[in-house]
């Protein structure tokens, strides 16, 4: 009973804040509503017994991603009102398509059929005394090692991409090069010039 109430509470707040993300006039408010939505999603994960995912969501999405969004939004000063100009124009068609899809998905959800035996496949057996985080760790590093490595590569490529697209070597910027600094000797740094008197340099 309490679980059900909690579920509907979190779910309701989440959907409401998701709507606000899209419809809020102030972009900073949008991001803040996004953070609220993340928190509610984390709470739903807790309800499902997936405490690890809940924590990850809070740490990564709220702590890093959403805050980053906030900075970007505040720094770039984009006129979101202008971006939303066509919103009303496309709303009828877009809304109709969305409604059709929604109706169909609702129908599909109501008439959901599982394949025979899928319940056994789906039910993750919880070993006694093994908590969620530990179980995930075991799976990721054993059974799913291949895709774990692959996701590492994905992140690496993302990093390369960010560097490729943004890093610039600007001429004229003075940088510190420790290697060069240390390898300097007296000979390369000092030039002794003998100047005869009264001739100037």
């Amino acid at each position: 009973m309490i679980q059900a109430i909690a579920f509907y509470l979190f779910a309701g707040v989440m959907i409401a804040s998701a709507v606000m993300v899209v419809s809020a006039r102030n972009p900073v408010h949008s991001v803040l509503f996004l953070i609220l939505a993340f928190f509610n999603a984390a709470a739903l994960f807790v309800l499902l017994g997936a405490e690890f995912l809940a924590m990850i969501l809070v740490v990564v999405y709220v702590g890093a991603v959403a805050v980053l969004f906030l900075f970007v939004v505040m720094m770039l000063d984009i006129n979101f009102a202008l971006l939303r100009e066509g919103f009303m124009r496309y709303l009828p068609v877009g809304g109709a398509v969305g409604l059709v899809l929604l109706a169909e998905l609702v129908f599909v959800g109501m008439a959901w059929i599982d394949a025979a035996g899928s319940a056994q496949l789906r039910a993750a057996p919880m070993h006694g005394g093994v908590d969620n985080t530990r179980a995930l760790g075991r799976l990721i590093y054993t059974h799913y090692a291949l895709v774990f490595q692959a996701s590492g590569l994905v992140l690496l490529v993302a990093m390369i991409g960010a560097i490729v697209l943004t890093l610039r070597q600007r001429p004229g910027v003075k940088r510190q090069d420790i290697g060069r600094q240390l390898s300097r000797t007296r000979d390369t740094g000092v030039e002794i010039v003998k100047i005869k008197p009264r001739t100037g340099v």
Partner: peptide, 20 residues
């Protein structure tokens, strides 16, 4: 971009509706 994205969505909805 949003026209393109919209076209994709229409495609998906059309196909799904077809089965429906």
């Amino acid at each position: 971009v949003y026209h393109y994205a919209f076209a994709m969505l229409i495609g998906v909805v059309a196909f799904a509706t077809w089965y429906f």
